[in-house]
Each structure stands twice: as structure tokens, then as C-alpha cells.
Design a protein around this nucleic acid. Structure first.
Lengths: 224, 224
DNA sequence: CTTTTTTATTACAATTCTGTAATAATTGAA
DNA sequence: TTCAATTATTACAGAATTGTAATAAAAAAG
């Protein structure tokens, strides 16, 4: 379930938004002001922040800037003000969207989902169990420690992790790794590569928890 | 300069938007309807599409779906309708934003810039001259042809391309490639790696157009 | 012009990668 | 259980990678 931090000092409005979003399947946490909001943000993990731009006890723009400096959680501004300058200022501190009151509930949900969707697309890391690929640097780590993979091992792992939970047939894998570059490799080569990858990323290669064999079909990366 | 495709059948409005955006430094191409719009989109390259949802000769939603199926150019809906269902439908076909008329020019610009910014962040390819790194697959191509890089060469190239136009000191590069994994390498090693990369990605390694030497400082990837 | 510093190039062993083959283990079916 | 098919493992050469050292070339300084 996606969790949302709502920072809004208008209690009735907050209750209304909160109720509606809960009904849509979001987990909503409500903070009444800047102090609470920032504290909550720093202690819990949220998928999205809904932020009233005009709080009584502080500046919404500053909160947004702070949140953006701490990571890349999407921030959507809520505002009564129809002031255009305000909107521009909101985007300038890195906001992802800006919605004027009065809110139309279904549009609010659509915009939240849009922000979440766009956001997940910008991931540069692929994770599975305790193994992380940082595709922006080309580095693979297991439990935070770097794992050295060869060029082909790296591409094979990327293929698995970007299709986490999905079965990849031997044919599909061979195509992606070899056929596209015009080469043909023997039937057993993939078995060997799987073995080599398992040796490097599994706790126990003899009992793989990440790269599962689907007999007669292919392999699958699982995260559990 | 960022190029924008404006698909809008209300001529005076189009002229007004077009004029304003041009003044803001965008290159605006105006299409009066679905047919022209799609044709233009398929023949030219745009950084963003502004799309009237209610065109006389077709359905804006369908155009958006088509554009999104062809790639991931950001699409922003423009609409007179304050209909909430319409907004939701817009996001459901993959729109990046949805702006109701009347437009406030500066907000329009802010939202366009926001869409462009979010978009560039989700790039999985790094380009420089005719060399492209597809970080989602771990593949490097030059003029569309695959270039085989070793693991370290790949990481070095990523470092350069994700800092295109920025000078990287020898120290910084060595840190990124070696020191972080606790190793220490000789002073000349980087020279050799630069040479090897140039041999693989430059037209003429003796006269590098991509990986430039900044004497006394380090290296820089340039795109011109 | 000469010297010094910096960068480029070449060549070289040690290591790793890559694909194949042979063999072993496992699984599912007869 | 027995057999056949599939997958895993090991071992091995040829190729590529990696880091170093020696030398050459280029650029800046004196």
C-alpha cells in the first residue's frame, strides 16, 4: 500500500482528503504543521507528500525544498491561492505538481498516481533481495559490499532484475545476451553463466534464493 | 533550444500560446488538428507536446495514447473543460500534466519546464556525440553498432557521460573507479584506460572529439 | 632552444573472462 | 525403479582484461 504524508493545518479539509484517499487504498498520515510534518517525514517512509503551501506555522516552499534535499520523494502542493506567482515558485523548489483548491477528489487521486508513476520510472537502481544494481554507476552490491561482475554477467543480472518475478525463457535470455550481437553460443553456455552469477550473488549457490530455476522453461529472479 | 509541438484547433488561442512560449525561448510548431499533429510528430523530434483534448477532427486522448506508444515524449493536455472525468481520463492515457483553460502563461511555462525536468531525470540512456549508453541494458553503441566494453571501461564511460561537459579531475576519476573499492592503482593506469576507451569510441583516437584532455587538470566528455 | 612536466603509446605478464566439453546431479515420466 | 531429459558442476584452453613499466610525444616553462 502506498503511504502519503498530508501536511495541512485546516483540520476539516484534512479529514475530508484523508478519508477520501483512504477509501482509494492509500495509507494517509496527517501532520498539522511544519514541525510535525518534517519530524514525521524524517522518521517514517512516505511514497508521496501532499503539502499545503500556506501553513500557519511555516513556509510550505521551504518544507518542499527541505524534503527534496533529503531525497526524491514526490511532493504535490495543495493551495487555496490562485496566485500564479505561487505556482511558479512551487515548481521552482522542485514540486512535482500543484493543485489549487477546491480539490476534485478523483483528480487529486489521478495526480497522485501520476506523480507516483513518473517517479518510479526514474529509478536508477534495481533491487532484488540484498542485491542492488546501481545502473547509473554500473556497480553491483550485495549487502552494501561491491560485487565484481564481468560485462556479460552484469547484463545478465540487469535482464533478470528488470524482469523481477517474471519468467525468462532460455531462448529469450540467449537472444538478449548473444543473438542480438550476431553470435551463436552453445546450449550449455547459459547454464554456466547462471552458475557463475549464483556463485557471486547468492548466499548459497547450491540453494539459490534469487535466481530460481523453472524446470523446462527458464529462470526467474524472485525477491522474498 | 527545446522544441514543442502544439496541437490546437483554436487559432487565436494557438497564436497567443505560441507567441508567449517563443518569448520564453521555446521553439513552437503549431498543428491545427489530429492529422497534421500526428504527421508532424512522426517526422520531427519534439521535447514536449501540448495537446488540446477536444479537437474538432479527432480525439485528444487517442493522440496521447498514440504518442506514448511511440516513445516517451512528455504530453501536457490543454482543455477548456473543467470536467473531472476528463482529467482522470487524461492521466489514464499516460499524460504528464493536465492544464485547464484559461491558461496563466507563467504557470504554463512552469509546468512545461517541470515536465521536461522530470522527463530528463528518468532517462536510461546517456548520449554524447554518436555514442549512446543504454544503462537499462548495460549496452553501449556507436552509430547504432554495439561497442564491447569491459566492466571498468563501461564504468569509466558512464562517469564521463553522466558528467558531460564537466571537467573530471584525475583524482576524482581514480576515486570513483578504484579507491572506493579499497584498491590503489598506479599513476599511469588512468592514461591507459583513457587510451583504450578512445580506441573503442572515438572515430580517431589520435584526435579525440569526445574525451578531451584538459592538461594539468583531467578529462572532459564533450558533445559537439 | 632546452628542460621539465604532463600525457600518450606500446609492450608485457598475471589474472580474469568466455565458451566448450565432459561429467555429475536432479527431476519428471514411464 | 528405471530411464530420459534437463540442469548443475567442473575443468580446460583461447581470448580479453587489468595493472605496470618503459618509452615516446606533446605542451608549458625557463
Amino acid at each position: 500500500m502506498r503511504s502519503i504524508l498530508l501536511i495541512e493545518d485546516d483540520d476539516p479539509l484534512a479529514k475530508s482528503i484523508s478519508g477520501f484517499l483512504s477509501g482509494e487504498g492509500f495509507k494517509v498520515t496527517h501532520a498539522r504543521g511544519q514541525t510535525d510534518g518534517v519530524k514525521l517525514f524524517e522518521t517514517e517512509n512516505f511514497d508521496c507528500v501532499l503539502l499545503d503551501i500556506s501553513l500557519e506555522d511555516g513556509n510550505g516552499l521551504a518544507i518542499c525544498a527541505l524534503i527534496k534535499s533529503l531525497g526524491d520523494t514526490p511532493v504535490i502542493f495543495l493551495t487555496a491561492s490562485a496566485d500564479e506567482t505561487c505556482t511558479v515558485a512551487g515548481f521552482e523548489v522542485g514540486a512535482d505538481d500543484y493543485i489549487g483548491k477546491p480539490f476534485r477528489p478523483r483528480e487529486l487521486v489521478a495526480r497522485i498516481k501520476n506523480a507516483l508513476r513518473k517517479h518510479s520510472g526514474s529509478q536508477t537502481t534495481l533491487k532484488c533481495a540484498d542485491v542492488v544494481i546501481d545502473t547509473a554507476r554500473g556497480v553491483v552490491t550485495k549487502n552494501g559490499e561491491e560485487v565484481f561482475l564481468s560485462a556479460l554477467e552484469y547484463r545478465l543480472l540487469i535482464l533478470f532484475f528488470s524482469n523481477k518475478g517474471i519468467l525468462l525463457t532460455r531462448e529469450r535470455i540467449a537472444d538478449e545476451l548473444w543473438t542480438l550481437s550476431g553470435e551463436f553460443v552453445g546450449d550449455n553456455t547459459l547454464n554456466v553463466y547462471i552458475k557463475r552469477l549464483r556463485d557471486k550473488i547468492e548466499d548459497d549457490a547450491a540453494e539459490p534464493k534469487i535466481l530460481k530455476t523453472i524446470r523446462g522453461m527458464g529462470y526467474k529472479a524472485v525477491d522474498e
